[in-house]
Amino acid sequence: MTQDQDPRLQALFARAGAINKGEAFTDQVMQQVDRVRRKTSAGWLGIALLFVVFAWWISGPIIHATGLLLGVLPASLVEIDDRFVADLLAPVNSVAGLVALLFLLLRFVYRKLFR
């Protein structure tokens, strides 16, 4: 018995009895569980279908954009007549090199300012 408890009330609670164990309750809960599982599966299937449709729809523009980007990135910034020197400086003397330099610069500035 716990603190401040009236034993007569305690006896009354015991006499009032309890609900009997029933298989029907378990069945009802499990039916609900099955319903939720079905809904969840249907939800995931829907999301997967949407993803496939979206991927199919977006794949054309992505491939096109990638092609354009690949055409632009190796373009030289400064024209160099000597073939050997042009190849040697290609990693720096290109749009890709410029983008990489810009990225490194921005990262350096960000780190200086915010860390």
Partner: peptide
């Protein structure tokens, strides 16, 4: 899970 329900429902 059904067994857990059976065990703790009361």
């Amino acid at each position: 899970f059904a067994h857990l329900v059976r065990r703790h429902q009361l």
